[in-house]
Amino acid sequence: MGELWELFLIFARMGAFTFGGGYAMLPIIQKEIVEKKKWATDEEVMDYYAIGQCTPGIIAVNVATFMGFKRKGIIGAIVATLGMVFPSLVIITTIAVFFQHFEDYVVVQRAFSGIRIVVVVLILQTIIKLWKQSIKNWVGIGLFALSFVVIAFTKLSPIYVIVLSCIIGIMVMGKKEVAQQ
């Protein structure tokens, strides 16, 4: 019971402080799950994102479900997901009841403009950290560049990028790993 409650609270904290989509959640995951709890490594978190991106559903929810399952099986998956969505339910219902045109309030716009800048800082630091761990050769740099350019400047689905890089990984890096052994 204790650990399930902990799982719920951690993901509720993420739900309450993630502004701007699934990837903005990463810095908090790194702090809470990887550094503090050591429930997963950075590599594993990246794998969950890759899978969460290619499977149906909302990425943040998919990643939460994955981690919950890894920790405590099916119950863990459900508890982590409920934790993730709980703050949204409370906050959005409150706004829907009490505020009209919430996004037009000056204080909201101001707070949000500051938060967005912090989100850029946090995402940049996450990228630097993950870069060190996952990009070890020119193939990796190429895959990073390909993925960034395709997603930032075209309307192609990220799924193609993930599938293609998986195939390249098996063809190129698989051989290398065998050769190194």
Partner: peptide, 22 residues
């Protein structure tokens, strides 16, 4: 493992693209 070794740099690229939007 080899597949995910290829996927991880691409995931960093996806994160960078999300950052670029912000």
């Amino acid at each position: 493992r080899a597949g995910f070794n290829g996927v991880r740099p691409a995931v960093v690229g996806l994160i960078a693209a999300a950052g670029y939007e912000v």
